[in-house]
Simulated scan of single mutants.
Amino acid sequence: MSWFLIRGWTILVYLFLFLPVAVVLLLSFNDNQFGSFPITGLSLRWFVKLAHNDAILRAFQTSLILGGLTAVISTTLGVLASLALVRYKVPGQNMISTLLIAPILVPEVVLAVALLLFLNALSIGKSFPLLLMGHVIFTLPFVVLVVQARLVSIRRDVEEAAMSLGASPMQTFFQITLPLLAPAVFAGMLFAFTISFDDITGTLFWKPGGVETVPTQIFAMLRNSISPEINALGTVMIILTVGLPLIGVGIVRKMAMSRGG
């Protein structure tokens, strides 16, 4: 009886979490201009309008550029930090690890306000570099955690064997360590891109005037009215944020299996 109640409660929780997402997906294909049930017919016209909306296209371009730069910078810093903390003895190692992971523990709105106030005290205004810096700070811990977990499992004697055969530390890294780290590096990069692409709280604080990402564009559109284009845009966001990690997991597993084989 208790197991039946747990199952029922679990189903209710999942319905509560995912039913609104399903509603957005269904309404994005609704032919009726007013999002309501029952659906009068299926149509792709809201996606067509979305593709011709200059503001949304600019927001997508900004989000892709911002997410791509965030992923590259966070992954590079995360790999270097993980190597230093796992492979070498660094003074204050525990404190550095705590500082790197801290952005996950601090609420994002607190982190956003703190960074904004700090830079305002230095007379640095809102700009795209500030927005990029904020996203890097927020996504870096995820990369560090993923890469460190993989690096710990890589045996040190494999690298030592390569160096004993005449390879330099740089050659050992690029020919031995990095290929073994590749699944974690790719996963961390994908994490950073997805988190940056979806972020709205920090972006609202850090973005300069006239610059919109996809989440802030949705937020701005909701201030005026609930347009069917918002449902279509929400569907695109859901496909991207769910599809990319699933594709990434498949690629990472394939890479790990090929390395293992």
Rank of each mutant, 00 (worst) to 15 (best):
I73T: 10
F118T: 14
P169H: 07
N231M: 11
K254I: 11
R7D: 09
P103D: 04
R155G: 12
F186L: 15
F174L: 13
I154Q: 05
V211P: 00
L180D: 02
D157T: 13
F173P: 00
I239Y: 02
L131T: 13
V146L: 13
V110I: 15
S168P: 04
K89Q: 15
T10Y: 11
I96C: 01
L99R: 02
V158W: 14
A187Q: 05
T75S: 05
H52D: 13
S127K: 05
R45H: 13
F205I: 04
T203M: 08
S2L: 15
V13G: 00
L111R: 07
I137Q: 07
Q171R: 14
I195L: 14
A167P: 00
G248V: 08
P20R: 09
R7P: 01
L151M: 12
T62K: 07
P20Y: 04
A162I: 09
T172P: 04
I65Q: 12
V242M: 12
A184E: 01
L19A: 15
V236A: 10
P228S: 03
I39Q: 06
P38N: 05
G78F: 06
A22M: 14
T241G: 09
I238Q: 03
T177C: 01
L15R: 03
F60Q: 00
M163D: 02
P91W: 10
R87N: 07
I239G: 01
V72M: 10
R253A: 11
S227M: 05
L83E: 14
R259T: 11
L100A: 00
G134I: 10
P215Y: 02
L83G: 05
A71I: 05
W3R: 14
K126L: 12
